[in-house]
Design a protein around this nucleic acid. Sequence first.
DNA 1: TACTATTTTTAACGCGCGTAAAGTTTTTAT
DNA 2: ATAAAAACTTTACGCGCGTTAAAAATAGTA
Lengths: 341, 341
Amino acid sequence: MTKIKNMEEFAALSGISRPTVSKYFHDPDSVRPTTRARIEEALEQFDYRPNIYAVNQNRKLTKNVGIVVPYLADPFFAEIARYLEQSCIAAGYRTSLFSSHGEQKLENEILDSLQSMKPAGVLLAPLGRISDRSAIEKFCANVPTVLFDSNLDGLGAAFIGSDNFSFVSQTVEYMVRTGEPPSFFEMRTPANPNANKRRKAYVEVMERLGFEPHIIKVDGTGWAFEEIGHKGALKVLKERELRTASVLCSNDRLAIGFLAACYEQGIRVGRKDDCTLRVASNDDHPFAKFTCPSLTTAAHDYDNVAGRSVETLFELIESGGKFSSRTETLFPARLVLRDSS
Amino acid sequence: MTKIKNMEEFAALSGISRPTVSKYFHDPDSVRPTTRARIEEALEQFDYRPNIYAVNQNRKLTKNVGIVVPYLADPFFAEIARYLEQSCIAAGYRTSLFSSHGEQKLENEILDSLQSMKPAGVLLAPLGRISDRSAIEKFCANVPTVLFDSNLDGLGAAFIGSDNFSFVSQTVEYMVRTGEPPSFFEMRTPANPNANKRRKAYVEVMERLGFEPHIIKVDGTGWAFEEIGHKGALKVLKERELRTASVLCSNDRLAIGFLAACYEQGIRVGRKDDCTLRVASNDDHPFAKFTCPSLTTAAHDYDNVAGRSVETLFELIESGGKFSSRTETLFPARLVLRDSS
DNA sequence: TACTATTTTTAACGCGCGTAAAGTTTTTAT
DNA sequence: ATAAAAACTTTACGCGCGTTAAAAATAGTA
């Protein structure tokens, strides 16, 4: 099997002219079936692939899609990224995956490097509160961008995420219905804007149900939520800050830490008779099934959020990178009952 | 601020000739300090960046490094990937991160697409047992590759990983020393070659200590280890397959499932008086600190494995992509005592 | 069979940058 | 100060492919 150097050479070997071969690689359906067959025959025989750098040098539409998540060590984002990747590849795009690792500086660097890749579009889950708004704004002005998971008002051509109110109302109502109204356990300065919406939803739902909201804010910054939840829970338990035997954690990773602390303190969590505390949470983290006890939580509609995100991005790309107006799409949660509440 | 189209234009604006500017971007130290200053001055004023596609079209050394891990939804790999990424970027390389998601087909596709990126080098943690050996062999013949985490005999220019014997000998000896000799809990057909080495080490250490090895193999394929560990543990507990009150799991993710099953069955795990079972494991997964009880485990030397991997890759690149002989570097484990054993 | 519509071929230019050769300027060493 | 070395400028070609315009070939139609 000879080594093919370039398209010229491959075209010669396949007996088709180079411009036609070029056209074929751009869209196999754009050439006559017979010539397509001849090219593909040669392709099997000689294993040639166009030089991606030469290709992208000239094209406007790079056929590259950038995917940026705030923290890849969180399996939640790893799972979403996986889905996004596969959808993009299925649609004929190449994919570049980046994690901001919780740092603004890195997020900015990623956007910078992404911009020089001239991607057809970008799926961006921003850091949130600590994002550099002006940097993202600038980026979105130059690159067709769909925001997901974490909304930044007005930025990007569209936002797709989860309906935080739906999350919290379901968990709160469930806990109230089957036990006591929960306290709300969260970080004092949450990185993610969803956290703020969840707190607000908690207050609203509690008041509507006629209970006094009780919010517990724990210290700690960064993305080591389990650690923060764990430390915070130890303090909460020691100082008996809970007003009822019921806690709703802002997110599952905090809850994982919370449950670990309960276990250490010998506090039985769950709805069985011998349990003295009920814990629920939001997200349905991949590990929520394996906490002790397993975690009752409101699940993201992963598939729809990811699916709609790529759909929207493709629409955006086909619209030439601009929408007439920015849309926000929110998917409701699904309550997952397990043992912790 | 005017928009610069190409290097020609930027060179004119900075008052330096294009070849010199080109040289600067290749290596800023290769030009005279005064001209470097002038270029960087212009750079701040005009914000120009060379077109990466045009650059890579001609260069032999792409300054790209590919990073491939078998399963990114495992935070262990996410953490390693993060470290590798940062080291590469610090060394002036661009980085492309891929996850095989546990599928051979995907691993092959990634290698394929990676090859057409003509990277300076690749850091590859292969799937292991289900890897397509011939595909990887072919790849390694064309691209300077360093294997890490999971060894494939003879493939790649070097391998850097953990010393599985060190892991298991430490955990087994600890458990024997402070309690009973453990059974070994693993998957029947482990995806990862480390699993086989761990089993062998277990047998060897047990025999040396004068105990009969007892291996429990649970069914299940794929990368959902927690689920497999959970299901397997329920069966083991129900059918009383344990010979002692002591279990060593092949890896932490299995252990997470095992502990969840114990909790559900009301079995107290740990070394306290009221505990009836001790569980230990290997890896020091990021979540091992938050299991219930927290997991005693042998920790990977993350930093050294990752650090040495990039070092080795850079050496490889500088050696022109070939080493005179393939080296295997193994780092020992560090026993992390927590509550489960 | 002749005519039209579609596709392919030929020929040639451009993209943005790497790189090489030859000549000029600046720096360093003596 | 002068020669040698180093860095820079000018000029020009090449990389592999996108793309276009005009000519040629093929397919479809009546």
